[in-house]
């Protein structure tokens, strides 16, 4: 009896959690006006692709999609390189002031991103990078949280392994490339996932530095569209589906790494 109640409750909560997504997908396949009915429908009466057609032809969402994709991949690749190199140095190099520097870096994580936004905007404007990919990539080059995660992981790699490679004549770079990176693969995948999803989902910063529809990422384009098409739930839902589907696919295929990463140290979105 207790078991039945428990399952009933869990399933009901599950359905309630998923319901917004089901409604979103169903409404995205409806013709204009068909989602504005009472009671709300969870299946389109007659499905149509017209909203997606409008999105990709008239509204040019494909370029927004590619902006999001290219930026997410670019930021992930570059930050992974920078963070893993620094994480390796913090884990395995000996130099004076290392612990102090690391502590300072960690404690600075409490500073909210909004503090840096204004001067960063002015800097990028001065460099002529506003409304370019560089405006997103530059602030994402390295991040303290990523360095921390890799350092925590790399610190457990035995020194004897690196020592014997060095005796065999391996350079520091070879050690990093051929020993550290392969051994750190799980954490690298986790970090790549966080960074990719974080960049894809980011809103406030792209809203500030991207000023032109052809440069917008999907979330910014969607927010912009919302202003003009408040009365078109069907079109807005199609836009939401296009924005959400890629992250859901990426997450589902690598969920093990994602959930493990959260358990490891917890992350801020």
């Amino acid at each position: 009896m207790k078991k039945v109640l428990l399952y009933l409750f869990l399933s009901l909560s599950g359905i309630l959690t998923i319901a917004p997504f089901v409604w979103m997908i169903s409404a995205s396949f409806m013709a204009d006006g068909h989602a504005s009915v009472y009671p709300p429908r969870f299946f389109p009466d007659e499905s149509t692709l017209i909203q997606y057609q409008i999105l990709f032809t008239r509204l040019n969402a494909l370029s927004n999609f590619f902006n999001s994709l290219i930026l997410s991949v670019l930021v992930t690749a570059v930050s992974l390189l920078f963070n893993s190199m620094a994480g390796y140095a913090f884990a395995k190099f000996r130099f004076s002031g290392k612990d102090k520097l690391f502590t300072i870096l960690l404690s600075s994580m409490i500073i909210p991103a909004q503090v840096t936004m204004l001067p960063l905007f002015l800097m990028l404007k001065y460099m002529g990078f506003i409304n370019t990919y560089m405006a997103i990539v530059i602030p994402g080059l390295a991040n303290i949280f990523g360095i921390f995660m890799i350092r925590q992981y790399a610190i457990s790699i035995p020194d004897s392994l690196l020592e014997s490679a060095r005796i065999d004549g391996a350079t520091d770079f070879q050690i990093y490339w051929k020993i550290i990176l392969p051994l750190c693969k799980p954490i690298l995948v986790t970090l790549a996932l966080f960074t990719f999803l974080g960049t894809w989902n980011d809103f406030l910063w792209p809203l500030i530095v991207l000023t032109d529809n052809s440069m917008y990422t999907l979330p910014v384009a969607l927010a912009n569209l919302m202003g003009e098409h408040t009365k078109d739930p069907e079109l807005m839902m199609a836009g939401s589906v296009v924005t959400i589907i890629p992250v859901v696919i990426v997450f589902l295929s690598l969920q093990k790494y994602y959930l493990k990463g959260i358990m490891m140290g917890g992350v801020k979105e």
Partner: peptide
């Protein structure tokens, strides 16, 4: 169950905020 409850976390905030805006619609909202 874990995956189901976790789904909203990974999805794009802007997109789900738009969905919820319609969920809260006074006449047609869920």
């Amino acid at each position: 169950f874990r995956l189901t409850y976790f789904m909203p976390v990974v999805t794009t905030l802007i997109a789900v905020a738009i969905v919820w805006r319609f969920i809260y619609h006074p006449r047609f909202g869920l």
